[in-house]
Computed example of a mutant assay.
Amino acid sequence: MTRIDFYTEVDEPAVFACRLANTVYKKGERLTVWLADEEALASFSTRLWCLSDTLFVPHCHVDDALAAETPVRLAATLPHDAGGVLLNLGPSCPDAPERFSRILEIVGRDEAALAAARDRFKAYRTRGFTIEHHDMSQRSS
């Protein structure tokens, strides 16, 4: 069954998301990063390129010709064949979350992010998913 991980109290969600994407990539897992829209997708892609001078996280748009062989795919709309790990940076729960082995949710400290996260948490819990909580308040991004 799909495992859901909520990382809460994250100081810099965008930076944390890039680091989390790198961690999943290093573990050899296929990752889909779901973003709210194409503008957010472009911004996240730029952040991945600028993560570090010596770090490279191979990624592309889910519709790119190289998507099938690229370990990290960025999507504003989830494809039906998405599987593996999902980093949900969008505003809602994905349709058919069970197609993913794991879903990663990052929650910042602002009220809007907290409210949206509470709704997603309740939706996952109602559907019977196992949820792990990681309090990041004492860790740096």
Rank of each mutant, 00 (worst) to 15 (best):
M1H: 15
R3Q: 11
I4N: 05
D5H: 08
Y7I: 03
Y7F: 12
Y7V: 01
T8E: 10
E9D: 11
E9M: 14
D11G: 00
P13H: 03
P13S: 00
A14I: 08
A17S: 06
R19K: 05
R19C: 00
R19G: 10
R19N: 08
R19Q: 05
R19M: 05
A21S: 15
A21K: 09
A21R: 04
T23A: 15
V24C: 00
Y25M: 12
Y25L: 05
Y25T: 04
K26E: 14
K27N: 09
G28T: 10
G28S: 09
E29M: 13
T32L: 08
W34K: 07
L35W: 07
A36N: 09
D37Y: 12
D37H: 05
D37P: 10
E38V: 07
A40M: 11
A42Q: 11
S43D: 15
S43A: 13
F44M: 05
F44E: 02
R47M: 03
R47E: 09
L48G: 01
L48C: 13
L48V: 01
L48P: 00
C50A: 13
D53E: 14
T54K: 12
L55I: 15
L55W: 11
F56N: 11
F56Q: 10
F56C: 04
V57W: 07
P58Q: 07
P58T: 02
P58V: 08
H59R: 07
C60K: 04
C60T: 10
V62E: 07
V62C: 12
D63E: 11
D63Y: 09
A65H: 08
A65N: 14
L66R: 04
A67M: 01
A68F: 04
E69N: 15
T70S: 11
T70L: 06
T70A: 09
V72I: 13
R73K: 13
R73D: 02
L74Y: 02
A75V: 02
A76W: 02
T77K: 07
L78T: 00
L78E: 07
P79Q: 05
P79C: 04
H80A: 15
H80P: 12
D81A: 05
A82F: 14
A82R: 10
G83H: 14
G84E: 08
G84C: 09
V85N: 03
V85D: 06
V85G: 00
V85A: 00
L86N: 00
L87I: 03
L87W: 03
N88A: 02
L89D: 04
G90Y: 07
P91M: 09
C93T: 15
P94W: 06
P94S: 02
D95N: 08
D95W: 12
D95R: 05
A96M: 14
A96R: 15
P97I: 08
R99I: 14
S101M: 06
R102D: 04
I103G: 01
E105L: 02
I106V: 13
V107S: 00
G108R: 11
R109I: 07
E111R: 11
A112I: 15
L114W: 13
A115H: 12
A116V: 04
A116P: 01
A117F: 01
A117V: 02
R118K: 10
R118T: 03
R118S: 02
F121P: 03
A123G: 03
A123V: 12
T126M: 15
R127I: 02
G128P: 13
F129Q: 13
T130S: 12
I131A: 00
Q138N: 11
S140V: 10
S140M: 10
